[in-house]
Design a protein around this nucleic acid. Structure first.
Lengths: 207, 207
DNA sequence: TAGATTGTTAATCGATTAACAATC
DNA sequence: TAGATTGTTAATCGATTAACAATC
C-alpha cells in the first residue's frame, strides 16, 4: 500500500461524506454513485479503493459500512488532536466557536494573540493567551497542530515560531478551491474534508 | 494564448505577491527567484510567463514592474466586483468585516441570513437582509458573485437558489490546501490569491 | 568577452479515463 | 442465466523538470 496518491487522499473525505449520508438507508454503493458524489470518474473511484486494498463485489457494488469504516481508519478519524488557534480577531474567534472542528476530532485547547486588548478576553471556555507563551505551551505538548488566523504580514513569523517549537501541522486559514461543475464556478470546500486530509498527511509526516 | 493552464493560473497570484513586495527595491527578477516565491521550478516559471507572451532578457531576468502589470491585467485586477455574503454567523460577519476583500477588488454589497434574530442587525454599513430577498436582489444585478458562509446543511439549497438567480461565481468559504514545504505540513493559502484565481475563471466562464 | 539567464525541447511523471474481461 | 458492476489494462492527458542552445 505505502503512501496513497495525493489525489486519492483528497477524494477520500468526499466518499466518506456520501457514505455517512446513506449508511442507514443503503447496504451497498456503486463506483458510479461514489464518483458522482466526489465529482470524479467511476474508474477513478475503483482505482482509489483498490489502493486501499478494499474490494467490492462484481455486479453488486461496495459495502457502505465497511467502506466507511475503512476510509475512517485510513484518515485516522479515530484520533483526536489538540489544536491551537493563533490570532483572536474575527476569524480566530469564529473558528474557536465553530463546532465543526470538535465534531471532526479537533479540540481547540488554546487561542493566542499578541494584542494586549485581546489577551485575557474569553472565547467560550478559553482565555486568550499572550502569543509569547506559545512556544512554551507548544513545547509542553499542549497541542500538536496550529491554525493560523493572523494577518498575512504576521503569518510567516508565527509559522517560524511554531516550526521552531516543533509543530508539524499548520493550517493557514483561508478559502480554497475544489471543483468547477458545469457553467457555474463553485469553490466547494468543506472544512472537515480539508482537516481530514491534513490530518492524514500530518500523521504520515510524524511516522 | 487562449486559456491558460489551470496550474499556471494558480501560480500567477503567487508571483504577483513577490512582485508587489520587491517592486520598489528591484528592477528585475529571475525565474529562479520567482520559482522560490511560488514554490515552483524555474523552468516552470519561464513556461508560465511564456504562456502570457511575456518575455524577459537573457542573462538579466524579467522586468519587475512590467511583469507585475502584465499579471495584474491577466487576472483582471482592474475590475471590481460586487459580492454578496450569505450567512451572518461568525464566519459571515468576519468576512464582511475583512478588509482584504475590498483591498482585492471585491465589494461586499449585501449580507443575507434566514434567521429573524440576525435580519436587520448591522454589520459595518450593511443591514442584514432576509435571505428570501436574495433572488430578487441578485436578479436586479446588485451583485454577480456570492460567498457562502452558511452551515453545510444549508449550502446546497442556497447554492441552488444562487444558480437559479443567475450567479456564476460562488465561493464556499472554508480553509484550503496549497503547499507542503519540507517536513512541516503547511496549508498555506491566501484569500486574495484564491479570489484572484476565482475571478479569472469567473470572467472566463462569463465570456 | 565571460557570466548569467532566458526560452524551448524532450523526457518524465502522476493522474485520468475508456474499455472490457472477469465474475457476482 | 442475464444483467450489473468490479478490477485492471492501456491509452491519454496535463503538468513538471532537466538540460542546453540562444543570447543579453
Amino acid at each position: 500500500m505505502s503512501e496513497l496518491p495525493r489525489a486519492t487522499v483528497v477524494r477520500l473525505p468526499r466518499y466518506l461524506r456520501l457514505l455517512d449520508d446513506i449508511s442507514r438507508s443503503r447496504e451497498t454503493v456503486s463506483s458510479d454513485q461514489l464518483a458522482e458524489a466526489a465529482g470524479a470518474n467511476a474508474a477513478n473511484v475503483r482505482r482509489d479503493l483498490s489502493y486501499l486494498d478494499f474490494h467490492g463485489v462484481r455486479g453488486v457494488g461496495y459495502s457502505v459500512t465497511e467502506l466507511r469504516d475503512r476510509i475512517r481508519r485510513e484518515l485516522g478519524i479515530a484520533f483526536r488532536r489538540n489544536v491551537a488557534i493563533v490570532g483572536a480577531g474575527n476569524l480566530g474567534r469564529a473558528l474557536a466557536n465553530y463546532g465543526g472542528l470538535s465534531r471532526r476530532g479537533f479540540d481547540v485547547v488554546a487561542v493566542y494573540d499578541k494584542d494586549d486588548a485581546a489577551i485575557g478576553s474569553t472565547i467560550g471556555k478559553l482565555s486568550v493567551r499572550n502569543v509569547q507563551k506559545l512556544t512554551d505551551d507548544c513545547s509542553n505538548g499542549d497541542f500538536d497542530m496550529a491554525i493560523l488566523a493572523v494577518p498575512a504580514v504576521a503569518a510567516q513569523q508565527v509559522t517560524d515560531q511554531l516550526v521552531e517549537a516543533g509543530i508539524e501541522t499548520i493550517l493557514n486559514f483561508a478559502p480554497i478551491r475544489v471543483g468547477v461543475p458545469d457553467t457555474v464556478t463553485v469553490r466547494q470546500v468543506d472544512l472537515s474534508m480539508e482537516l481530514q486530509v491534513l490530518s492524514y498527511y500530518g500523521r504520515r509526516t510524524l511516522a
